[in-house]
Design a protein around this nucleic acid. Structure first.
Lengths: 167, 167
DNA sequence: CGCATATAGTTATAGTTGTTAACTAGATAG
DNA sequence: CTATCTAGTTAACAACTATAACTATATGCG
């Protein structure tokens, strides 16, 4: 294997002279996937700190909000909406049920499926968490104006759900 | 545990009547963290498909690009730039080294550290992959105009690297 | 009816990733 | 020369992802 002299001359020849600390100037800076991942990690870090006291993880929060909006939703539909695999839903709902936040109700018409509902406790918590999550979003994006934040949101929706993005 | 009648009346009382398929209208639709994650998954899916033939994962691609830009960079600095933990870097570089794409060179001044360089083969591949990644970005964001794509990128950089975002 | 097929939920399993602690070799400060 | 620090590594473990297979129920059709 031969070391490339060409690339070696781009910035430095001896190892570790410049102590680079960012991807500024690299091709990576223009990659959407990279930027999305880094931004997501940043926002999630804030979110997790905010939710730490409640021991709620991102997927659990999403589930609570969807169940709140569609009480009685089946696990299959919840999986479809959140785009996660059915097996993940099982342990997710188990956990919420163990904590007394949600419960399964066997559906009379189709005894294979369960409707999922929030308990009073789950509903109260969800209300609290939604407010917390909004604050967390704002804290994580201090460098953005409210307008930019809305712009960003609308661009992201266009990517992951181009059909439902408002036209 | 009591089922909340209030939330149960928001959309439906019986399980699974409406077969909801999106988060439209829910609080989730306005959560940046959720939107970022979903958008990231969408873009990564395209990326992984594009890279499948080369068996390159996102973190490997990022590493290749950074090493190309900073030949001789130490593993510690690579870890800092990409914000991943040092132990992850080890297996990452091991893999690149096994495939003959990169190599460690023991630094003479500090024999603890290694400078990492691309091989000719690694450099050639990186050039190819950068072009592929750009195409993949565009494919994954068909619903965005070129201007929107640039807007998005700039907003994301402001979030994960507010210091380096152009002022 | 009775058979074949499909679906909801679950369980088990394995591969991947992320995190932490601890170890080794070499560097550095007093 | 000793104590402390740092780069890299290894190992252990939790978390997440993806897949396959199983159970119970439902549905379509001859």
């Amino acid at each position: 294997m031969t070391i490339s002299k060409k690339s070696a001359s781009v910035h430095q020849v001896e190892p570790d002279d410049k102590e680079p600390t960012s991807v500024a100037g690299l091709a990576l800076e223009n990659r959407l996937g990279y930027a999305l991942r880094r931004a997501q990690l940043t926002v999630f870090k804030h979110f997790n700190e905010a939710m730490q006291a409640y021991e709620i993880r991102p997927a659990q929060f999403s589930s609570l909000v969807v169940i709140e909006g569609y009480p009685g939703i089946t696990q299959t539909n919840l999986a479809k909406i959140l785009d996660i695999d059915p097996p993940r839903i099982v342990s997710l709902i188990n956990h919420l049920e163990e904590r007394g936040l949600a419960l399964r109700v066997r559906c009379k018409r189709d005894k294979r499926s369960h409707g999922i509902f929030l308990s009073k406790k789950g509903e109260a918590l969800t209300e609290q968490l939604k407010a917390l999550a909004e604050q967390s979003d704002i804290q994580a994006t201090q460098s953005l104006s409210e307008i930019e934040r809305r712009q960003l949101l609308s661009l992201l929706v266009k990517i992951y759900a181009p059909d439902t993005a408002d036209e």
